[in-house]
């Protein structure tokens, strides 16, 4: 058992999966000699060579598009997009090719591939190094979407994503890459895609979050506990598919829910989950579902910390649903 940061856990997991399955290859900008700009692919080139750790030209369309062809031909590519904000030149390849290959070929061709990307703000990156574009992916049928928030989950979910038979978008909150360390088992464990984690048991209200905002969600839970409020906390971990059983089980119990994430509010994944809760549990709710999301501005530079859902904002929303 090693104590690792999230980015260390990712680098180790990539090495383990490449060791386990020779079909696994890594490609992206600076993933070779540099080991990735965040060091998520550190050591892979020396260990596995340039045929399986491919420094690509600076083209997201080439990276994702080539990954589709590699996957269709039988490899298990793991593509790195240097920042989630850079996905857009490759978005056509995701939406047109990766997401629809299985469907449009009637299951004859598939694209089992992973696209990893550092996402989210809180690192003074301005609007082109801070975005959380998961809603774009969630709105595209054929893609699975995962957002991790702990080193343990990063390992288990990355393994599950690499072994999945569908394209998986794997979002890694860059703010959490080195924020904490935790014990990560050496064994070959999987965290299943589609399952939320209960981070705290509670009875008075449910806080649902994922990714970049999880530290604030957990702090809000601590603050509420000090005030005598028992909050149950779910970390969604997967957005497509999202864990409707865990969500409805918890909200049916508490009758109150606050949903938290840093992605912009309009057309967000949180909105979809809130709507589903309202549809399914309307007669059991004690208050309407409330969202605490990113603002609908481009991600600002000077107000970097204010853009992210703050503990205060989460507590205000909790107060609103508790006093409703």
């Amino acid at each position: 058992m090693a104590t690792l940061t999230m980015v260390q856990a990712i680098a180790r997991t990539l090495a383990e999966e490449m060791e386990r399955d020779e079909r696994v290859v890594v490609l992206g900008e600076d993933v070779g000699r540099r080991g990735g700009v965040f060091l998520a692919t550190e050591g892979l080139l020396d260990r596995f060579g340039p045929e399986r750790v491919i420094d690509t030209p600076l083209s997201e369309a080439a990276i994702i598009g080539a990954a589709v062809g590699m996957a269709a031909h039988g490899l298990r590519p793991v593509a790195e997009i240097q920042f989630a904000d850079y996905i857009f030149p490759g978005f056509d390849q995701l939406a047109t090719q990766a997401a629809k290959l299985r469907y449009r070929s009637g299951g004859q061709f598939t694209a089992p591939m992973v696209v990893r990307m550092p996402s989210g703000g809180g690192v003074r990156g301005g609007h082109h190094h801070s975005q959380s574009p998961e809603a774009h992916f969630a709105h595209t049928a054929g893609l699975k979407v995962v957002v991790v928030s702990t080193p343990y989950d990063a390992k288990g979910l990355l393994k599950a994503a690499i072994r999945d038979d569908d394209p998986v978008l794997f979002l890694e909150p860059k703010r959490l890459y080195r924020a904490t360390r935790e014990e990560v088992p050496d064994d070959d464990y999987l965290v299943p895609i589609g399952k939320a984690a209960v981070r705290r048991q509670g009875t008075d209200l449910t806080l649902i979050g994922y990714g970049t905002s999880m530290p604030e969600v957990l702090k809000a839970g601590d603050e509420l506990a000090k005030a005598g409020v028992s909050a149950e906390i779910l970390d969604l971990r997967s957005l497509v598919p999202w864990d409707i059983e865990a969500v409805t089980r918890s909200v049916a119990k508490t009758g109150r829910v606050v949903l938290v994430a840093d992605a912009p509010r309009l057309s967000s994944v949180l909105g979809e989950i809130a709507a589903t809760i309202a549809e399914e549990l309307f007669d059991q709710m004690l208050a309407p579902p409330v969202r605490v999301a990113g603002f609908d501005t481009p991600y600002p530079y000077a107000q970097d910390k204010l853009y992210l859902p703050t503990v205060t904002r989460i507590l205000n929303a909790a107060k609103h649903v508790l006093e409703y």
Partner: peptide
Amino acid sequence: PPATGAAL
């Protein structure tokens, strides 16, 4: 791009 990937 997928053709390039398959060729790779």
